[in-house]
């Protein structure tokens, strides 16, 4: 399973990376050919809110179908980066490209809050995710299929307020998946869940990602979650990518393995050493 290949990068990419992240290990992992995901190229991305410069030049290439985790201290700009990728904020400078023209349904976001409509039953909430296909004849069938994928087919006629936190988040996942997105952005999707629910949700996320092959971008403050799920972990400090770490463990990931624990430790020490410097 450990098939990560180190391939040579284009000169411009190398040049732009070495400018700001001298320690970054630049690696591109080979993904299965059948991926439905889109590749992602980010060049010189900057974003400020008022006088506060949140992102100070991000250059990043994500191959199609890769699972990337973005970690960093709060306020480092990781959520902003995700919101820019998802098109929720305007770009100040630089570019984000997906290598082709995309439809709104191709990119989906899942937030820390489930953001379900409390006045719509579970199935209707999932149908919201179909976007412009909401009115189509197979909307019900597609929504039901997505619900089955997250294991909640029996809750289709339930009100969201009667679901547990983990179930709500699974409905939100079904809503994000129902349009078969090619890029799925997760903004701390498991941050509000208890430890056990978190682990089972992580397994679910890994499974649907492997089944559907979308490109996954996960923002999290939990380093162990990042190494448990991602092919690659980006550490963001002060609006820049400070480290780019490859996780070469087999899938499905074995939680608590020495390999993952070692990686987690080294990423944590990066984060903490940045703390010491300031």
């Amino acid at each position: 399973m450990q098939t990560a290949l180190r391939t040579s990068l284009s000169e411009t990419e190398l040049a732009s990376r070495s400018n700001f992240a001298p320690h970054a290990r630049v690696v591109r992992e080979e993904r299965p050919v059948h991926t439905s995901g889109l590749p992602l190229s980010i060049r010189g991305l900057r974003k400020s809110f008022g006088d506060n410069e949140v992102l100070r030049g991000i250059d990043l290439h994500i191959p199609a179908g890769q699972f990337v985790a973005i970690v960093g201290k709060s306020g480092c700009g990781k959520s902003t980066l995700l919101r820019l990728i998802a098109g929720l904020e305007k770009i100040d400078a630089g570019s984000i490209s997906f290598g082709q023209d995309i439809q709104p349904e191709d990119i989906r976001v899942m937030f820390q809050e489930p953001r379900l409509l409390p006045w719509a039953r579970v199935l209707a909430n999932v149908e919201v995710g179909l976007g412009r296909d909401r009115a189509s004849k197979d909307a019900h069938a597609r929504a039901e299929k997505a619900l089955t994928e997250v294991g909640l087919a029996d809750k289709r006629d339930q009100w969201p307020s009667l679901l547990s936190g983990g179930q709500k988040q699974r409905v939100a996942l079904a809503r994000a998946l129902v349009s078969r997105p090619r890029v799925l952005a997760f903004d701390e999707p498991l941050g509000a869940l208890d430890a056990l629910t978190r682990i089972s949700m992580q397994r679910l996320l890994e499974r649907v990602w492997r089944d559907q092959g979308f490109t996954a971008i996960l923002v999290t403050h939990d380093v162990s979650e990042a190494v448990a799920l991602a092919d690659r972990v980006l550490v963001i400090e002060d609006g820049r990518i400070a480290h780019d770490v490859v996780v070469n463990a087999g899938r499905p990931r074995q939680r608590g393995s020495a390999e993952l624990a070692g990686l987690e430790g080294s990423i944590l020490s990066h984060l903490l050493s940045a703390d010491d410097r300031t």
């Binding site: 929720l88 995710g129 976007g131």
Partner: peptide, 27 residues
């Protein structure tokens, strides 16, 4: 406002946003 943002992300038109999010929320 998080629900309104969600509605926009999922491509609701202004009319749909009112009918499916704003009005039921205000009810």
């Amino acid at each position: 406002p998080q629900l309104i943002e969600m509605g926009r992300i999922y491509g609701m038109t202004d009319g749909e946003l009112f009918r499916r999010v704003i009005f039921p929320g205000a009810l």
